[in-house]
C-alpha cells in the first residue's frame, strides 16, 4: 500500500505527459490552457470558502461543537467516530466547500495524521455533495420525480462514511 501511495501520483503525471508527447500533443500549451480553468474554479470557490469558514470559526468559538460532541460522546464511541468528524459526516452531502472548511479545521486542531484527520480525509474523498449533484442533473432535464435516486445516493453516502471509519481502523 505504501508503494501505491508513493508512486500513484508521479506515475500518473509522468504517464499522461509521455502519452501526450507520443500522440504529438503540445503538452505545455495544453497544460497552460487547462491550468487557466483550474485558476478560475479556484477563484470561484473563494467566496463560499470565506463565508463558510466564518460560520464554522464562529461556531467553534462559541463552544457549541464541543457541547454537542460531549452530549453525543457515548453514541460516537460505539460507532468509533471521532467527535471532530461528526460535523463533516453531516455536512458532506450538502456542501463541498463547507466540508473542505471543516477538514481544514480538523487538520489544524488534530493534525492530518491523527485518526480523526485520516477518517476525515477518507470520508471527504469517498463521498460527494449529493444534493448539489442531484439538483444540477435533474434540474437540467426538469424532472421533479426522481423516484429512488435520493434514497440510493444517501445510502451510498452512509456506506462511504461507515467505510471510511472501518478502513482507517483496519489499515492504520
Amino acid at each position: 500500500m505504501r508503494f501505491i501511495s508513493v508512486f500513484a501520483v508521479p506515475f500518473m503525471i509522468g504517464g499522461i505527459i509521455v502519452f501526450g508527447l507520443i500522440k504529438r500533443v503540445k503538452v505545455y500549451d495544453c497544460f497552460l490552457e487547462g491550468a487557466k480553468d483550474g485558476l478560475c474554479s479556484a477563484i470561484n470557490i473563494l467566496p463560499p470558502l470565506v463565508g463558510l469558514m466564518v460560520a464554522i470559526s464562529m461556531l467553534r468559538a462559541s463552544g457549541i461543537i464541543e457541547l454537542i460532541s460531549r452530549i453525543l460522546a457515548p453514541l460516537l464511541k460505539v460507532l468509533f467516530l471521532p467527535a471532530e468528524v461528526l460535523p463533516l459526516a453531516i455536512l458532506r452531502p450538502v456542501s463541498g466547500s463547507g466540508s473542505m472548511a471543516i477538514i481544514t479545521d480538523i487538520f489544524k486542531n488534530c493534525g492530518p495524521d491523527s485518526f480523526a484527520g485520516r477518517v476525515a480525509s477518507v470520508m471527504a474523498g469517498s463521498t460527494e455533495t449529493t444534493f448539489y449533484t442531484l439538483a444540477v442533473y435533474f434540474g437540467a432535464v426538469n424532472i421533479k420525480n426522481t423516484r429512488h435516486t435520493l434514497k440510493s445516493a444517501l445510502l451510498g453516502d452512509l456506506t462511504g462514511i461507515i467505510m471510511s471509519i472501518v478502513v482507517c481502523r483496519l489499515l492504520f
Binding site: I16, V25, C30, F31, L32, G34, G38
Partner: peptide, 8 residues
C-alpha cells in the same frame, strides 16, 4: 491537475 488532465 486541471492542466495535466487537459493533456489527458
Amino acid at each position: 491537475w486541471t492542466g495535466i488532465s487537459k493533456i489527458a
